[in-house]
């Protein structure tokens, strides 16, 4: 496992994917509180903005800033969680490197597992940087949040993104091109998002994790979304397991 894990991490570093994930997530993590704070001021000074618009805009507060932070990271994070791993398996199968590696004494579970762990580590690094920057700007621009609540929010965000990493790895295992893999993942994203809008179903869907995380960060009274957490973890585990079982059966 260690050998392939090192190879995967080195690959993410040399192909600059670690930098892309870190840069995008930290940029949008920082932009969340900054844009909520300064957008009304910028708009008020922009020429051509209808008179009185700035006055009717709500006064920015920490809840809006946290919400913006989460929406940014969840939105761009999911896009990265689909685009970064989409070629992970199918690319190696098509190029022949998977055959080269798997003709050596290494299991397919380790091959797939090392990829999942590597993506986990780079998304962890990205969210860590985004979280540190976001927490700092939330503190200096609005108010200092309790660190444990903000940590919980980012932890739930990480779990949410890893579900899409697992789905994309599954799609990359079953499809014949990386674009097909991305297509499958985007379709599942839309499907999950649509089902999450149905009020009777939403408490059980992964999207509820985001609302729960916001409530924890802002120390609001909210129903814990344990079911949604269990569903997210189960979807992650099951899609990874399905990808492994399918890869076991595939010929290279």
């Amino acid at each position: 496992m260690q050998t392939l894990l090192r190879k995967e991490l080195r690959e993410q570093w040399r192909t600059h994917r670690i930098l892309v994930v870190a840069a995008v997530l930290s940029l949008f993590g920082l932009l969340g509180p900054l844009s909520v704070k300064y957008l009304p001021l910028i708009m008020a000074r922009m020429p051509g903005v209808p008179e009185g618009l700035a006055e009717v805009m709500p006064e920015p507060d920490v809840a809006m800033a946290v919400d913006e932070y989460v929406q940014n990271l969840a939105g761009f994070g999911v896009i990265l969680a689909i685009l970064i791993p989409m070629a992970a398996v199918v690319g190696e199968k098509n190029s022949g490197t998977a055959a080269m590696i798997l003709s050596k004494p290494v299991s397919r579970a380790v091959f797939l597992g090392s990829k999942f762990i590597t993506y986990g580590l780079i998304f962890f690094a990205g969210i860590l940087l985004a979280g540190l920057g976001g927490y700092y700007y939330l503190g200096i621009l609005f108010e200092w949040l309790k660190p444990e609540g903000f940590l919980a929010l980012n932890g739930l965000l990480m779990i949410y993104l890893m579900m899409f990493v697992a789905i994309t790895l599954f799609a990359s295992t079953v499809s014949r091109s990386q674009f097909a893999a991305a297509g499958i993942s985007f379709s599942l994203l839309i499907f999950i998002s649509l089902l999450g809008t149905i009020p009777s179903l939403s408490p059980y869907f992964p999207t509820s994790l985001i609302d729960w995380g916001c409530a924890l960060a802002l120390r609001l009274d909210a129903e814990p979304a344990w079911t949604a957490l269990a569903v997210t973890v189960a979807v992650t585990a099951l899609t990874w397991l399905a990808a492994w079982l399918i890869l076991q059966r595939q010929e290279l």
Binding site: R10, E11, S95, G96, M100
Partner: peptide
């Protein structure tokens, strides 16, 4: 077993020595 496929494929970002020592050798 040692296996050489008809068209051997490698990671283009890797160096030859690194591929043999850090990847293939360690996998064995």
């Amino acid at each position: 077993v040692g296996y050489l496929p008809e068209e051997p494929s490698f990671y283009p970002w890797m160096r030859a020595g690194e591929f043999l020592a850090d990847l293939v050798g360690r996998l064995y």
